[in-house]
């Protein structure tokens, strides 16, 4: 009888361990609160693993976990804002705490995070999933359970806002232009 984990087991465990960091980073980009982001990532992982039998393709593990992270995030927002539907939730601006002291020490990082934080939640989710995780539009549509056209329009509005905010900052502080 073989008791050692198979290569498939070890690879999936490795993916799951690495996935925690990815979930945390995106959750942080959504909420800008380290403790909450950690809870969201842990919760997504826990919920995901408890329903792992529903995952049919191991190649889709991460997009599946991000979809669960999205539902954890919505649950959290719902607990804070009762009687608000999902569509309206996605349009709400943030009232969460601002970037923490780590970011304050890095001017560009801080400015970009503030710009992200100023986006409506739905736009913030789309732009971070595309830019941080490199998900395709189709994958983001699947993760957030929205039409691909909505992904594109939200991304378009998000980048438009970011361009405006960041270029304003660049005018005030030309150093921003030096950041690729």
């Amino acid at each position: 009888m073989k008791w050692l984990p198979s290569r498939e087991q070890r690879e999936l465990m490795e993916q799951i361990k690495a996935g925690r960091g990815r979930l945390y980073r995106v959750a942080f980009a959504w909420c800008h609160d380290a403790a909450l982001a950690d809870d969201l990532a842990q919760e997504a992982l826990t919920r995901g693993l408890s329903r792992l039998e529903q995952l049919r393709e191991s190649a889709k593990l991460m997009s599946w976990l991000f979809a669960i992270l999205n539902r954890c995030w919505i649950d959290h927002l719902r607990a804070r804002r009762r009687d608000v539907d999902d569509e309206l939730l996605s349009e709400l601006p943030s009232d969460l705490p601002g970037p923490d002291s780590h970011a304050e020490r890095q001017e560009t990082v801080s400015r970009v995070r503030r710009a992200i934080e100023a986006l409506p939640l739905g736009q913030r989710q789309v732009v971070t999933l595309v830019d941080l995780e490199g998900f395709s539009y189709a994958e983001v549509a699947e993760v957030l359970e929205i039409p691909i056209g909505t992904v594109m329009s939200r991304l378009c509005r998000a980048r438009g806002s970011l361009r405006g905010l960041l270029m304003e900052g660049a005018t005030a502080q030309p150093r921003l232009r030096s950041v690729k």
Binding site: A37, A103, V127, T128, D131, R159, V179
Partner: peptide, 30 residues
Amino acid sequence: ELRSAKELVRHAYGRVPQVRRQANRHLSFW
């Protein structure tokens, strides 16, 4: 500008703060 915006987002979250828990203040909502 679009590409710069994309790169800036990546840059902004390249390093994110680690959690320093004193108390698990958020767990109550689950």
